[in-house]
Write a protein that binds this DNA or RNA. Structure first.
Length: 623
DNA sequence: TTTAGGG
DNA sequence: CCCTAAA
């Protein structure tokens, strides 16, 4: 069914790509409404009844209201599916009957323009395409939200006609969900330059914060309430200790992600131990083309932790419009103030960071655009992964958005379209303004001006990570001149960006990558990127070499770069063989074939790549 | 200027 | 990271 659905989504979009751009975003917003629809077996949609709407609202409400929160443990087990479809009750004691009438259908919450029944696609269109290009972020948020519902209901429903493949093993069933964003396509790079990678799944073994749980375990209800409040910025009356613990724990780990609807599926995370959760990775697709969401389910054994990728920039606004009330754990959309609280709490409770501590400290100092710092917790991994989804939007935004920045730094108060400005600076010698590294972070902050920080701010991660420059250690040389030693350790987010960049532009086009993905970070020259990539390749290669090392590395916490990333790197390494690094690794001969057989072959820079490769190879053989 | 590579 | 050769 889902596949069906998905298909329709696709088609629907393709068919109705008619840009609805006649609407202003304001108009659009005012017309945004949540609609519930029932999805029939055949994939058609029926508007939901009042009751159902109420029910969904239940989903969004907190347990204390005796309403329903879905905290389902999802697991696939062919043997006895029924048992696997466990739904954890909340203290409020959930009435199962009341919970979801999903036996008969799927509840979907979606945004759509005036709902009209003349077309199923209307629904899809509204949901996936959004009301307007400018609302893309909204759109994506919806798709993820929808996905949640889909997934959820999918499981509750015992839809056997969906082929999950052989359930049980660490196999993954996919619920492909794609949303297209026509509005963004062919933007920044020009369609031809885009490389499309099939969505890949990256398993992430993430150790959950047992410590937190333990810690919380010892707390009294009152304390837990307190913690809850500081974590989520709201009171709770829930008495159930376990629930609180779970919530808080989870919140601590994912508070950043929390603003998105997540509770429907996340349940297991804190209660299960070290289940490897399969993260869906929305791989970079061609800029703005469509985000491909692949839900991977399954992991070691039966329990499944689902982590659904979510568009970061989305959720908040979307949901706030309709469900501002629903600020609660699951669908909690923490206001920035709330998040500050969260932050504070996290700082107290979070287990000592292994690395990237520097980040934390300087994030603080660079609290420029009112953004929040990135969490540097175990969840970071997950977070980062999800981040890649936003990459494009972010990038696009940065590159294209007609946002005006106030240039007080340059002395002129001129307002120049951001994108233009960047290019200008780049082309010109005026680089100093933004290349002028250290001192004026203000400049940096301005680059990601506050203008869009409020609602559009796609990925606070970057803005934060890149914004800070305290990582630089100032070295006093004997020469008397204090000079910076550009030793700034690479943020995971940066690494991710780099990887994304490479996946898009291929190896060797570091300037492009730098310009587009690292525009906000003055440091990190193209050379740096190159170097880093080299390192990454080495790392990934080393990892592939022996698994023991991997394990150890993880245990020793000496591997700052998550395997998932490394894995991606190695995948990319095959697609875009980097000149030299990869000779001793991987089957030397297969690489060439692999290249050919790779369906993903870089469309854009194929030529240059080849020639480059050729040159390199040539050289290599001679050296 | 940018990229590849060595240090 | 830095530096440099080559393009």
């Amino acid at each position: 069914m889902v596949e069906n659905w998905q298909e329709k989504c696709k088609t629907g979009n393709m068919i109705d790509t008619s840009k609805n751009t006649s609407m202003t975003s304001g108009e659009a917003a005012s017309r945004l409404t949540y609609k519930l629809v029932r999805v029939e077996e055949d994939g058609t949609f029926d508007p939901a009844s009042e009751d159902e709407i109420t029910e969904v609202e239940h989903l969004l409400a907190e347990p204390k209201n005796e309403k329903v929160s879905v905290d389902a443990v999802l697991c696939y087990n062919n043997e006895n599916p029924e048992k696997c479809l466990a739904i954890e009750d909340f203290p409020g004691s959930v009435d199962h009957n009341n919970q979801l009438k999903t036996d008969s259908g799927v509840l979907l919450s979606n945004i759509t323009r005036e709902w009209s029944d003349d077309s199923k696609f209307e629904f899809l269109d509204g949901m996936l395409q959004g009301v307007d290009e400018e609302d893309l972020h909204v759109t994506n948020g919806l798709s993820s939200a929808c996905e949640d519902y889909l997934l959820d209901t999918e499981f509750v429903e015992k839809v056997p006609d969906l082929d999950y493949g052989t359930c049980g093993g660490p196999r993954s069933g996919n619920l492909g969900f794609e949303s297209r964003s026509p509005g963004l396509s062919e933007r920044d790079t020009g369609g031809a330059e885009t490389l499309e990678l099939s969505a890949s799944t990256i398993p992430v073994l993430e150790s959950t914060s047992d410590q937190n749980v333990l810690l919380l375990d010892k707390m009294t209800i009152q304390e837990l309430h307190k913690a809850f409040k500081s974590t989520f910025g709201r009171e709770t009356t829930v008495k159930d200790k376990q629930w609180l613990i779970r919530r808080i724990s989870f919140g601590l780990q994912n508070f950043v992600e929390l603003e998105n609807a997540s509770s429907l599926l996340e349940s297991g995370i804190s209660s299960k131990r070290n289940d490897g959760d399969m993260l869906l990775v929305c791989n970079n697709d061609s800029p703005g083309m469509y985000s491909s969401f692949t839900n991977v389910v399954g992991s070691k054994g039966k329990s499944v932790d689902q982590s659904v990728l979510r568009e970061r920039l989305t959720g908040v606004d979307v949901y706030k419009t309709s469900y501002s009330e629903a600020k609660d754990i699951g669908f909690g959309f923490l206001s920035s103030r709330d998040r500050e609280d969260t932050l504070a709490t996290r700082k107290r409770l979070r287990k000592p960071t292994r690395r990237y501590i520097e980040e934390t400290s300087d994030l603080k100092s660079r609290y420029c655009s009112g953004k929040l710092e990135t969490p540097i917790t175990s969840s970071k991994d997950k977070f980062m992964l999800s981040r890649s989804c936003n990459q494009h939007h972010w990038k696009e935004f940065v590159a294209m958005a007609p946002v005006c920045k106030q240039d007080s730094v340059g002395g002129s108060d001129s307002q120049v379209p951001f994108g233009l400005r960047m290019q200008k600076k780049r082309t010109k010698k005026n680089t100093s303004a933004w290349e002028h590294d250290p001192g004026d972070n203000k400049n940096d902050s301005l680059l990601l001006g506050p203008s869009h920080s409020s609602d559009l701010e796609p990925s606070p991660t970057e803005s934060q990570d890149e914004m800070s420059d305290d990582c630089l250690s100032t070295v006093r040389t004997e020469k008397g001149r204090s000079r910076r030693k550009h030793h700034r350790l690479w943020t995971l987010s940066e690494v991710m960006k780099l990887v994304d960049g490479v996946s898009q532009y291929g190896v060797g086009r570091w300037t492009d990558i730098k310009r587009l993905l690292f525009a906000s970070s003055a440091y990190r020259t193209s050379v740096d990127l190159k170097d880093k990539w080299r390192n990454l390749l080495r790392a990934s290669g080393a990892e592939l070499k022996s698994k023991r090392e991997v394990e150890q590395g993880r245990k020793n916490a000496s591997r700052p770069i998550p395997q998932s990333v490394l894995r991606r790197v190695s995948e990319l390494a095959i697609i875009y063989p980097y000149p030299r690094e990869r000779k001793s690794k991987l089957m030397p001969k297969l690489t060439s074939t692999a290249l050919i057989s790779t369906p993903i072959q870089a469309a854009p820079s194929a030529d240059t790549s080849v020639s480059r490769r050729g040159r390199i190879v040539h050289r290599k053989s001679f050296t």
